[in-house]
Structure formats: C-alpha cells, structure tokens
Amino acid sequence: MGEGEHTSDSTRSRPRVTSPVAYAHAVRKVYGSGDSAVVALAGVSAAFHQGEFTAIMGPSGSGKSTLLQCMAGLDRPDQGQVVIAGEDVTALPERRLTAFRRDRLGFVFQAFNLIPTLTARENITLGPRLGGPELDERWLAQLVHVLGLADRLHHRPAELSGGQQQRVAVARALVHRPDVVFADEPTGNLDSRTAGQVLEFVRRAVTEFGQTVIMVTHDPAAAAHADRVLFLRDGAFVDELVSPTSEKVLARLAVLEGLS
C-alpha cells in the first residue's frame, strides 16, 4: 500500500540511536463482516521511540482510536503485529496481557476514568495494589508535587475539578514508569487553559523523564505539544509532521479535508 511506503519513509527520515520502543507492523482490523464490513485499519505500520511524544490525528472514523486500542492491547488486530518493549502484544494471552498493561503501559482517557469510590492517592496507586511493580514513594511525591495534587490526595474524584481529575489520571499513568503511555483525547473534556496545563505536564514527562507517549487527539493545540504528528485517514497513515505547531497542524488537516 502506498501509504505504508510513505510511513516507512517518514520513520527512516528520523534516524534514532535507539531501536523503537514500540512498533506496529501491518496492523489490520475489520469490524463486522460481508457487505457491512468496515475496515478500521488497513494494514498500518508505525514505530515509536523512547522519549518521543507522538500525536495521532485524523478525521472521525479514520481509525485513530482503533489503532491506539490495538497498540495498547485493549483490542486485538485481525492481522499484523504490535511489539512493545520487545513483547509481541498481539500474541500475549489475556492474563499476561492484563499484567503487561498494568506493569508496562499507562493510560489516560478522555473521561478521566477514575474509580469514584477511591481517593486521588488510592486511584494513583491502584496498579501496585493490583500486584503491579512496587510503589516508588519518592517518584510518587515528585509526580504529585509537579502535578500540584499535594493537597488533593485524600479527596474523592467527585470532589475534584475536571483538570484535577485528569492530572490524577496522568499521575496514575506515570507512577509505575511505564514503557509507553497511551492517551486517548486526554484534553477532550477540559477547557483550553486546564488542557494546556495537563499537556504541559505530559510534555515535561517526555522531556525531563524520557517518557514515551502516544496520544490520539483531534485538537491541533494539543498536537502542537508533541514531537511529531502522524495523520491517519481511512485506516492508513497519510502524512507526518515533525515539530508541529498549531498552525502547521491546521494547515495539514485542511489539506487532508481537501483530499476527501
């Protein structure tokens, strides 16, 4: 597929010392069957490197959320392979996959997704409680400090603002130093100022702590915080933008819309 070549060109164009921490190879996902079949991913390949912040953009129905879910082991592709930190995610049995997600991946979702009955601190430390890697108290303290959550730790989600809730979610995604953090529209429910704070923090996690982040978004301002933006359309990568700004992203999107 033409788009596939385009993608491999673009990954080659950013030479890295390290090998990719995560990559997707010819991932294909079809929903339904027969006439009603919808091709969500038409054989997508991409590589993601250590300490890189990648945004995935595309119009609705382009397959960006499906790709994220297949990469994160939340959904299984029909064909292709996803490898994260040397583990073939697509081949892991369900139990091992659950443990792998808990220990090696972090998640931030649009709808905050905190457990309503637990306090902020308990939500953040859920992974260790579930048998994940041991809690690094110093790292937790640092996270809480940077995220400005120090005085909110013993509040329940209902007692926190949206921005605070999302910062708790970010802390939970980072507390076990995962190989990759997946973020699905993390600022979708936030106002632009709060969204900016959350993204600024994600940015710092990448820059200062070498965190790898893959984020799906439709917000050019959010994408501007990333190192690069991959554009997805009809289940395939069609373009890539390095060192994006809001304006550049908007322009690319306009071109993409024009294509349709």
Partner: peptide, 14 residues
C-alpha cells in the same frame, strides 16, 4: 467500575 479497574490492570480475579 469493573471496566475501569480492568483498564488499570485488574484481572477478573481481582
């Protein structure tokens, strides 16, 4: 909540 927990890495047993 069950779904949330499982996303956070809880097994069915949890």
């Amino acid at each position: 909540q069950f779904a949330l927990l499982r996303l956070a890495g809880a097994r069915r047993g949890h």
